[in-house]
C-alpha cells in the first residue's frame, strides 16, 4: 500500500523490472548519443552570438538596409536584395532587426542554395524568429547578435513570424523572405 509504512522494502528486483531497466538504459544512451551525432550533420543550432547594444545593432541594421534597399513592399517594409552579397567562406552576412514598434525589418530577397549568415537582434523586447513554413524557430534577445547560418533549398515566398510574445503588437510582427533562383 502506498500509504502504509513498509517493512523490509530493500528487496531484489523482479525479472521484468530488471529487463525493463536494461531496455530503458539502452534507450537513454541512444537519446544521449543522438545529440552529439546530430552535430555530424548540417542541421544544428548556431553557437555564434556576439554581444552588442540595441543602439549599435540598430545602426548596423540601418546601414545594411540603406546599402541594399531596392524599394518597399505593400506594407511599407524596405525590401533588401541580398542575392549579390558576397558569400565568402562562411556565408553572406544579412541583418534582421525586430523593432520596438513591432516590426521586422527588412523584407529579404535571397538566392537559392546560397549560404547566408542571418544576424538577428532586437532593439528592445524579446522576440521570436519563426521561418514559415519551414518551421525553424529561434529566440531573439536585445543586446545579443545571434548569427544563424541558413541555406535556402527552395525558391518561393516565405514568412518570418514573431513567435515570442512581445507586447500588444505581437501579432503584427512578420516580414517576407523571398527566395529566387
Amino acid at each position: 500500500m502506498s500509504i502504509e509504512t513498509p517493512k523490509n522494502w530493500w528487496k531484489p528486483l523482479n525479472k521484468e523490472e530488471r529487463i525493463w531497466l536494461y531496455i530503458v538504459g539502452v534507450w537513454a544512451v541512444i537519446l544521449t548519443i543522438m545529440m552529439p551525432y546530430g552535430h555530424t550533420r548540417d542541421h544544428n543550432i548556431s553557437n555564434e552570438t556576439w554581444k552588442t547594444t540595441t543602439k549599435a545593432y540598430t545602426a548596423v541594421s540601418k546601414a545594411f538596409i540603406k546599402k541594399y534597399k531596392i524599394g518597399e513592399d505593400e506594407r511599407g517594409v524596405p525590401i533588401v536584395d541580398a542575392r549579390n552579397i558576397p558569400e565568402g567562406k562562411r556565408g553572406a552576412d544579412i541583418f534582421l532587426i525586430a523593432t520596438r514598434a513591432w516590426q521586422f525589418k527588412p523584407h529579404f530577397i535571397l538566392k537559392k542554395d546560397k549560404k547566408y549568415r542571418i544576424h538577428m537582434s532586437s532593439d528592445f523586447y524579446e522576440h521570436g524568429f519563426s521561418l514559415q513554413p519551414m518551421n525553424l524557430n529561434y529566440q531573439i534577445l536585445p543586446n545579443r547578435d545571434f548569427v544563424v547560418t541558413m541555406t535556402p533549398k527552395q525558391s518561393g515566398k516565405f514568412m518570418i513570424v514573431c513567435n515570442e510574445y512581445c507586447g500588444p503588437g505581437h501579432h503584427n510582427m512578420f516580414t517576407t523572405l523571398e527566395v529566387k533562383e
Binding site: M35, H43, I45, L136, N137, N163, E164
Partner: peptide, 12 residues
C-alpha cells in the same frame, strides 16, 4: 528537449 529538434518546436 533534444538540442537540435528544439528548433522545430520552440514557441509554436
Amino acid at each position: 528537449s533534444t538540442e537540435q529538434l528544439n528548433v522545430l518546436h520552440h514557441n509554436n
